[in-house]
Write a protein that binds this DNA or RNA. Structure first.
Length: 638
DNA sequence: GTAGGGTTAG
């Protein structure tokens, strides 16, 4: 907290007290004709506003506080205004005029000068300007983007002291701020103490429980609400998304429509987030069709959500369409599209789009660079990647962070340039993190660099001892080097720490329904048919000359035969088998997997794309694999 | 006579 904040508030008692008397509010000054004011909306440039200001000084209109504050407001709020001019003007006003100060706070809030907004409040309290309801709601709003618990308490005291606590705006803002700070007890106190509650009061409370992950109280409030509007429903959907219950989020959305609540852009963004996580492309397309049918404007948020949904469902064409339809693109929208192309293996297209963005004079941020470096790494574009890293700071003023170095280590590792990897890791200003060691380990396995790989694996286990992937990856490396004796040690150490590999889980959407499979799953109602299909797949794979890569199950089981069965029943194979029997020939099969795909599945799917003449798109925990005509978009690096 | 509250976000 900046220290200026503590000065004027420190005299305020912590326990709210109702003061005996207040200075009476300064009465509004008498009206004066101010003809020049009507010219204000015509000022399209700052210098024009200044000319008008000069005219108002010359004609003494400036001494009318109403006129002066309208001018101050224009300076503070209009797009080509000037906060400095506004502040100077407000400070020069003879009478302290609450509206003028509010307008100045509002302007600073709009420009996200949060600290400045709060320090203006401090000045208000020092200058005997009497703050009103607007002042408090504005400054409370400023507090939500920072954590200023003590300041909020002091403001709360000031509010009570002035008898303003029953203003619906202030009360709702207070609940909101307390909720954002996680102080639900305080939020509840304000809520329970409200003599009358409007829908925003209820929604603020709802939001608090949602934000703090209290599902029980959330549902209690939701059930008790006298009426619910689109915000109430949006809050519920957002809660389900936040706690990772994506099916629940979609279910809420369905109920909302049943109750004929008119949805808005926020609803759609939330639902798209859920649908994206589920990889439910058909439902995502439904949302897109809904947007088109109802002529809903694709703003940058909705556009980015749509681009992201299509990208994460492995449908790049859809993402491009959505991107083109988004009229007002923000940096987020560009990032979503560049990232989407990169993740789906379209590295050159990602680079093209980045250049286009530069030509459009849109300044990239750290995320843009993560996306573009990711594109270079997936596409094996070493020179481009290094060039981007090197121009980040000098050209764009962006300091490379761990994510950027991570991409570059991945890039160089894939290319087998281990000397440069070590050089970069030594010269970078931070210590390598688990992700970096993980990608290096992967590269070492591919390039059979056992020594460096083992080092990376041991560092990885040190940094991420609870992550099952650390052990699996190192075990795969030992298998690669035929160091079988090391594997039982790893297994033992996993057992001792109680680390379990989560069961691989794959989902596939058929006719708008999401079907989930885990390894060796027999729960599906068409299980018999699915396993028949798996057998057929195996037979045809054998004919094509395939041999299972049994090293993939090292950590799981030991018996050779069991290993083979276990491999054949990996969840993605079951999902693909189900896809093959339940969609028309030629239909693209899309599968979402919760963990990385093993290299056995990878070679199987390459063959299956030829045998069944299907495009197979698998999204695993790491990236996308587009299998087509026997090869994969990841070029066997992942 | 001028304004202000709650939901989404790569």
């Amino acid at each position: 907290m900046p220290h200026f904040l503590s000065l004027p508030f420190s005299n305020v008692p912590m326990t709210p007290t109702i003061p005996n008397s207040h200075p009476p509010p300064i009465p509004n000054p008498p009206m004066k004709p101010t003809p020049t004011l009507s010219l204000l909306p015509l000022c399209n440039h700052l210098h024009e506003t200044k000319q008008l200001h000069a005219l108002m000084i010359k004609t003494s209109q400036i001494s009318d506080p109403y006129a002066a504050s309208r001018l101050a407001e224009f300076y503070a709020i209009s797009d080509n205004g000037s906060l400095q001019c506004s502040e100077k003007l407000v400070n020069s006003m003879e009478e302290p005029y609450t509206f003028a100060w509010n307008t100045l706070i509002r302007g600073n809030l709009k420009k996200k000068n949060t600290h400045k907004a709060i320090s203006l409040m401090v000045q208000v309290l020092c200058k005997s300007v009497e703050p009103d309801c607007y002042t408090f709601t504005l400054v409370l709003k400023a507090c939500t983007s920072l954590v200023l618990t003590e300041t909020v308490r002091q403001l709360h005291c000031q509010i009570v002291k002035r008898g303003l606590e029953n203003s619906e705006f202030i009360r709702n803002k207070l609940i909101h701020v307390y909720a954002v700070y996680g102080s639900m007890v305080d939020a509840r106190k304000v809520f329970d103490g409200s003599p009358d509650m409007d829908i925003v009061t209820w929604n603020s409370m709802l939001e608090g429980y949602a934000e703090n992950g209290d599902g029980e109280l959330l549902h209690q409030v939701f059930d008790k609400m006298p009426q619910r509007d689109v915000v109430s429903w949006n809050t519920m959907i957002a809660y389900y998304v936040r706690v990772g219950e994506f099916v629940g989020a979609v279910e809420m959305f369905r109920r909302m429509q049943e109750e004929r609540i008119c949805l808005d852009g926020v609803t759609l963004v939330s639902v798209l987030t859920a649908v994206t996580q589920l990889g439910a492309l058909a439902q995502g397309k439904w949302v897109h069709a809904y947007i088109r049918k109802h002529g809903i404007e694709l703003d940058d948020n909705l556009g980015s959500a749509l681009v992201n949904m299509y990208s994460k469902c492995g449908c790049v064409d859809g993402a491009i369409e959505a991107f083109d339809e988004t009229k007002k693109k923000s940096l987020d929208t560009w990032n979503a599209m560049i990232g989407g192309l990169a993740a789906n293996g379209q590295s050159l297209e990602a680079i093209d789009l980045f250049s286009k963005m530069e030509r459009s004079n849109i300044q990239p941020d750290t995320i843009t660079f993560s996306c573009i470096l990711n594109a270079c790494s997936h596409g094996g574009l070493v020179e481009d990647g290094l060039a981007y890293l090197n121009k980040m700071k000098p050209v764009h003023g962006i300091e490379p962070d761990m994510a950027h170095y991570g991409c570059v280590v991945d890039l160089l590792g894939r290319a087998g340039m281990f000397d440069m990897v070590e050089e970069i890791m030594k010269s970078m200003p931070m210590k390598p993190d688990a992700i970096m060691w993980k990608s290096l380990l992967g590269a070492c396995k591919t390039h059979k660099n056992f020594e460096l790989g083992e080092k990376a694996g041991l560092e990885l286990i040190e940094l991420a001892p609870d992550d099952h992937a650390s052990y699996t990856l190192l075990s795969n490396l030992y298998a690669m080097a035929n160091k079988w004796d090391q594997v039982p040690k790893l297994r033992k150490s996993m057992l001792e720490k109680g680390i379990k590999k989560p069961p691989g889980c794959s989902s596939i959407e058929v006719d708008g329904l999401v079907h989930e499979f885990i390894v060796g799953d027999t729960k599906h109602h068409r299980s018999k048919k699915i396993y028949d299909m798996v057998e057929e797949m195996e037979a045809r794979l054998k004919v094509a000359g395939y041999e299972p890569d049994i090293r993939q199950v090292l950590l799981d089981i030991e018996e050779e035969e069991v290993k083979q069965t276990s491999l054949a029943h990996h969840s993605e194979k079951l999902a693909v088998a189900f896809g093959l029997i339940s969609t028309r020939p030629g239909t693209t099969i899309r599968v979402i997997k919760n963990v990385r795909m093993c290299s056995d599945c990878h070679s199987v799917l390459k063959l299956l794309s030829v045998i069944y003449n299907r495009d197979l798109i698998i999204r695993d925990s790491n990236r996308f694999h587009h299998f087509k005509e026997g090869s994969c978009s990841c070029m066997d690096y992942w």
